[in-house]
Design a binder for these strands. Structure first.
Lengths: 338, 338
DNA sequence: TTGTAGGCGTTATCAA
DNA sequence: TTGATAACGCCTACAA
């Protein structure tokens, strides 16, 4: 019921100055062993923990990490949040979320304000916002720590964690071809996003190597939404009825393909194979369950958290060298041998 | 590129003391009109905004609102976060997320610590954690502001926002019966949760009024997961093959029912009708699209945010009287007339 | 190795 | 209506 103990209480109880207590709190090396032990004990007894507000005010830090995103995929965001938090809480940071509007004009200043208003120590940026060069530049100019999560290596390795979507799609292409598929259609993502381009290129690249042609009219650009998936699937299936396998840029759109196939009386996977990307909640639930690609989102997020904290605390972890993770194929029921 | 202006800069430029500037910032009434205008102008010119850290240190506030939950439903959480943020950002608060582990022993002290470490001004608690009486008591005892989101009216109305799940299930029952259903099975949620009990009771209540009996062996308690839905559906469908309609406590389990029906060669909705709850992402994607119940989650969350801010700032909004919102039926393709 | 003094940017007390 | 002055709890030069 009493107030929280302060550094002064600890200092008084331990019979030292608060400066010394401060040293102990911050793990400074120049403290006598006996003194340190005495102080540690008092801290334990009193349950003292430094006040973040005061600490922040004095040191210009907040122990707050921001998460910036404009992504409709709630599941992805949830995984990221949990991944980041697993690291944060252990290091004494809290996570402040900031969904934003990538398309508005003031989106950059909005993000900058978010950071400076609350003195956020650093931000983690999710795709597709993370692809915005302007935001990264603005952040850098303002000396704000940031780490981007992306599908392309477009920044210094201490500022980014990338998933190798391209490699994953090469695997998928090989898998499809190995099952005999030759008549392949694609519902790509918006080509203004690197992630979409990477996936498309990785897929086509390997298909070409394996001498499988995909005529341009079998590649349709979707918008990553379920509705868009439905629309594109209709177009594709009517326009190119010979297509026997479709890769959709994400599971949402793949679910749309399933829907259209059902409407048109096409059986999946017997008459049409379908692949998605994300391993969304949907993927396993849908009938037939989707063969798709899973990114280790939680791990990537945790890595991003470690990087941002390393930046903040100036402790360049060796691990900072790691920045590339590879997604892997999840094989379920939506692709069949022909 | 210069540092942010401080209250001192403003005071100097306006030729007043910082105390007066402080009054203007905080909207105190006892400031001369001319003085106020001058100060307002300087604030605008300099782009000054008060530092939250310093402000918090002085006033014992952080302008941080915490979100406590232990809920696997990422979509629900995402909707809540957006709803809360829409209010927060406008009132100058930030949202700090705190997923926790309802089942661990230290879960309460963990939450309390979370709040006190960062001086969180108030917390919003989501179900099912929000049902924990002990947590609410601990919070109250520590004088921590909180608002619970729940399905039952189990707290003071300024501390809770409840969705009337019971009423929604009465509607569902009437709807099913109106379509001729008499052979109804139920996959309920864990009965240790109020929300699950409310739904089950509301459903049975109205069924009884309409003289539709549900034998006890047609009511199976599930765990709200997809897997659990599959398991329960198998049991139910094998044990009571005459069942022609199933209500599942959430969409995840309803998706499980669909899966099992497909496995067993039972056509939905022709031979079996299915209803869910949540209007999950799945609901519209699955085939057939699920008839389900939608809670206005975003609105509830925004309301909760307004309540918590009212508590923090001591401004009891009249709106605080509102606390009950009613979910509504979303009719899709999974229930058919018999 | 330890302590003293001053400052971080704001709000609160009390007088004028 | 205003303004000195002291908190708030911690960190950081600079000394000892």
């Amino acid at each position: 019921m009493n107030k929280r103990p302060t550094i002064n209480d600890v200092a008084r109880l331990a019979g030292v100055s608060k400066r010394t207590v401060s040293r102990v709190i911050n793990g400074a090396s120049n403290v006598g062993k006996a003194t340190r032990e005495r102080i540690d004990e008092v801290i334990k007894e009193t349950g003292f923990s430094p006040d973040k507000q005061a600490r922040g005010l004095a040191a210009s830090r907040s122990f707050l990490i921001g998460l910036i995103y404009d992504n409709p995929d709630a599941l992805y965001i949830d995984q990221v949040q949990r991944g980041v938090l697993s690291v944060c809480s252990e290091k004494g940071y809290e996570l402040v979320v900031h969904p934003c509007n990538y398309n508005t004009d003031d989106f950059i200043s909005n993000c900058i304000q978010f950071v400076s208003r609350s003195r956020i120590d650093g931000v983690i940026i999710l795709p597709p916002v993370s692809e915005a060069k302007e935001l990264a530049e603005a952040l850098r100019e303002k000396q704000i720590n940031y780490v981007r999560m992306a599908s392309v290596d477009l920044d210094d390795h201490s500022n980014i964690v990338v998933s190798d979507d391209r490699a994953a799609l090469r695997d998928l292409a090989r898998y499809m071809v190995s099952l005999g598929h030759r008549d392949i259609g694609i519902i790509s993502g918006p080509q203004r996003y690197y992630s979409s381009k990477e996936r498309l290129e990785g897929f086509l690249e390997t298909l070409n190597e394996l001498h499988v042609e995909v005529p341009v009219d079998r590649i349709i650009e979707g918008k990553n939404s379920y509705e868009s998936g439905i629309e594109c699937a209709r177009t594709l299936l009517i326009q190119s009825p010979r297509v026997k396998a479709i890769f959709a840029n994400n599971d949402e759109m793949a679910a749309g393909v399933l829907k259209v196939a059902h409407e048109m009386g096409i059986t999946v996977p017997d008459e049409l194979s379908v692949a998605g990307f994300d391993d969304n909640l949907l993927a396993a639930r849908v009938i037939p369950a989707l063969t798709t690609v899973q990114r280790p989102v939680g791990d990537m997020a945790a890595l991003a958290a470690r990087k941002i904290i390393a930046q903040i605390e100036g402790t360049e972890v060796s691990e900072t060298e790691t920045y590339l993770v590879k997604p892997h194929l999840i094989i379920r029921d939506s692709i069949k041998r022909v």
